[in-house]
Design a protein around this nucleic acid. Structure first.
Lengths: 141, 141
DNA sequence: GTAATTGCAAATACTTTGCCACGTA
DNA sequence: TACGTGGCAAAGTATTTGCAATTAC
């Protein structure tokens, strides 16, 4: 099933976050976007833009990341991208180095086996991975 | 075979870059490091520090990236990392989210097949990928 | 009531560029 | 000589923090 806003807010409260308007709107925005977003994009998007300050979004994102509900991604841009961590959903991305388009890849991710191997061999904890493909999209080529 | 400095300089000249002291020292530093490095690290490292300016390193890295000899990586930090692109060498990384340690992974990379699939299905050109594992290393745990 | 959260503004950090002098081809 | 390259300094962009006022629990 698809996570909904109430689920997310519930998980937030379990992590000790208070239910504020800003939190609700931020989560709703991330959920609706279904794509990694930069702080700048979030700051400009309605209704976030009118609801709260850049610093608030920034701090919420980091609290959410600490709670494991949001992940910060690199995606080859100067700005950081943030995306919701939804249960049993892992996304890899295909990114155009010219226009910056980000496409989620729906093929099954081929690195879980290697991830397990690394977990066992190295003793790293809380292991996860980030896989991005970069290239020039047909439109830009 | 392992690339050496003269190889690299030769490739540079073929791309139209002039052979300057700064270029030599930068390439030698990247080659010796055998690890992605940030601009700040490069700027401080000897003998680069005494040889040239931050802006020079910055511009050289970008020229080298345009020539396909250097790649810019995200690696989950605020600063960009740069690494030499050596023929038939692809590296994935294991990164500690606490202390920032970066370990190259020597296991064979399991995504080339998917990469080919993506190339064929999407028509993206110059496709390459970046794969990073993140976790908490035993020392930090 | 208490502690977390917010807005505003200022401070950092990292990257990028302009301009003129210089060195390579 | 001509044009790419280098140094220095300033500007640009994104992130991060301090503090007093506010709000959720």
């Amino acid at each position: 099933m698809i996570a909904d806003l109430e689920d997310l807010l519930h998980r937030c409260r379990k992590s000790g976050l208070r239910r504020t308007k800003a939190l609700e709107v931020l989560l709703a925005t991330l959920l609706k976007a279904d794509q990694p977003m930069t702080l700048a994009q979030l700051e400009k998007s309605r209704p976030l833009a009118t609801q709260c300050d850049k610093a608030t979004i920034y701090r919420l994102l980091h609290r959410l990341a600490d709670a494991g509900m949001v992940r910060r991604l690199g995606l080859h841009e100067r700005a950081a991208y943030f995306t919701l961590v939804l249960p049993d959903q892992h996304r890899d991305y295909l990114i155009c180095t010219e226009c910056g388009t980000i496409d989620p890849i729906d093929a099954p991710c081929p690195v879980h086996e290697l991830e397990n191997e690394i977990r066992n061999k190295t003793g790293y904890q809380n292991l996860y991975h980030e896989l991005e493909f970069f290239g020039i999209c047909p439109k830009c080529a």
